[in-house]
Simulated scan of single mutants.
Amino acid sequence: MTSFTERTKATLRETLLDAAADLLPDRGHQGLRMADVAAKAGVSRQTVYNEFGSKAALTQAVALRVAAEFLDGIRCRFEDAESLLTGIRGAVVYTIEHARENRLIAAALGTEAGEDLLPLLTSRGEPILTASAELAAQQYLALEPRLSPEAAALLAETVVRLSLSHLVLPTHSAAEAAESVLAVLAPAIDQFVHNGVKREGQS
């Protein structure tokens, strides 16, 4: 495949994802029609099927793209952080604030049309959860190298799950949610770091 063909294919895929992302908040997964995605993108319905294979695959691709955008934002927060705790705080605030502003996620959390999108974030959201936790674990180790990989992975998954719970049940502001996450995580981080130093001293 030539570079021109690759660029054309990538542009087509992005155009289809843009069209689906624009339709999903109002229609949900069940109400989304491949023909409408095709019409909005200015292509044939068969082109959409050729690119994604099924409506479920298209919806999942939209969700993964949204997740990738959030992961980039989270990565930037960690890169600018002075410590692990400030990095976690910034990442949680960013995740919750921008998730509430994102049309697709807001629909999944708060509209009738979005009810069938919610599983992409919860029961069927394992690819998103995994990618978020893996990125966070890498950043945790960079900011606090005394953590073991296992501890970093456990802490990262816990933060992701706690952040998700605040999104699904938004009873606090983003800043308040971040502080509650830190209240749970700070003692655990101290314990993991202490144990890591202790093991090194005993070896």
Rank of each mutant, 00 (worst) to 15 (best):
T130W: 06
L182D: 01
H29C: 11
D22V: 07
A113W: 12
P127Y: 08
T122K: 06
A113M: 09
A63V: 00
H194V: 01
C76F: 03
V37C: 09
E97Q: 08
E134Y: 09
F192G: 03
E200A: 02
S180K: 09
E69P: 08
A108K: 04
N50L: 10
A56Q: 09
Q138G: 07
A41L: 14
Q46A: 12
A188F: 08
G125P: 04
I189R: 05
G114E: 09
N50H: 11
V193Q: 00
R77Y: 07
T171M: 06
T171F: 06
E97Y: 02
R103Y: 04
L182C: 04
L147S: 01
R89P: 10
E150P: 00
R13V: 14
Y94Q: 13
T158Y: 02
R65D: 01
L135P: 05
P187D: 14
S123T: 15
A133F: 10
E69C: 04
G73L: 08
L64A: 06
A63T: 00
L169H: 14
R65E: 00
T171A: 05
P25L: 08
L85F: 13
A99I: 08
E176H: 13
P119H: 05
A156W: 10
E101P: 02
G90I: 08
A38G: 09
A113K: 12
V193I: 02
G53C: 12
V181L: 03
L23P: 04
E144F: 05
L16D: 03
K55G: 07
S83K: 09
A19H: 02
G73I: 08
I105R: 08
A39S: 15
A142F: 00
P187W: 15
L109F: 03
R199T: 00
E115D: 01
R27L: 14
L185H: 13
